[in-house]
Design a protein around this nucleic acid. Sequence first.
DNA 1: ACAAGTACTTACCCTAAAGTATGTATCATG
DNA 2: CATGATACATACTTTAGGGTAAGTACTTGT
Lengths: 122, 122
Amino acid sequence: MTAIKESSTIQENKQYALDKCPVTYVMEKIGGYWKPIIIYHLSTGNKRYSELKRAIPAITEKMLIQHLKQLEADNLVIREAKPIVPPFVTYSLSDAGNGLLPVIEAMAAWTFKEKDGIFKTK
Amino acid sequence: MTAIKESSTIQENKQYALDKCPVTYVMEKIGGYWKPIIIYHLSTGNKRYSELKRAIPAITEKMLIQHLKQLEADNLVIREAKPIVPPFVTYSLSDAGNGLLPVIEAMAAWTFKEKDGIFKTK
DNA sequence: ACAAGTACTTACCCTAAAGTATGTATCATG
DNA sequence: CATGATACATACTTTAGGGTAAGTACTTGT
């Protein structure tokens, strides 16, 4: 899952930011172009892998599972696989994942305000 | 300020995410290891360039102004320079920047919950 | 027997973001 | 006359994330 160089200032600074900054900690988990979109689609109900794929046509399969795996590793989504063939795998938000929804809504709210020009340029 | 290649799928997908996803829009503005930290320091009061530098020893000067410039361009911080020498430049949060504080607090709150194990692993 | 659907995996490439190092202009002070 | 403080700028390198393309295993339908 994308190997990382252990000894680089960029990793050290990441660590620094992760420790010092609870905001960075969240962004590590929901950052990247696709994660918020995936989370959004899961917030409207459990979805199969193929459903997600169809819901987000622009994403490649590599990016989709890569992010799903990361979200699962971070305990934000839960993967359930029925041991049948053809496979039947469902993804859903965990408690922690659901806990992020207010954060996500706050962000969305800010964006709409900003785009509506609610904040004067001062 | 870091030239960008206009024609690449990564840019297209970024654009897609920015249009489709208000969350990504926020993260574009406060993403990166240092921006949240800078914003935090400004949220406790206006700061001179050199004060920020001292407050965040691990950051390089390049990263510091680069992010300050971006934040200014995004209308999140305001730069005020007194036309004297030695220079006296102050940075402060704009209305839009202050509008982000609830978002930032929501993120911090989630992190603390998560680290305290409030979310059970299911 | 061959295509289609399920859910992935893997090898390789490209770029934006981050970091390193050094330089600039102006003035005050020892 | 050279050092320190102010607030930057700029060339050059590295790396982590994102993208492309192709393959896997197993079954059902035609």
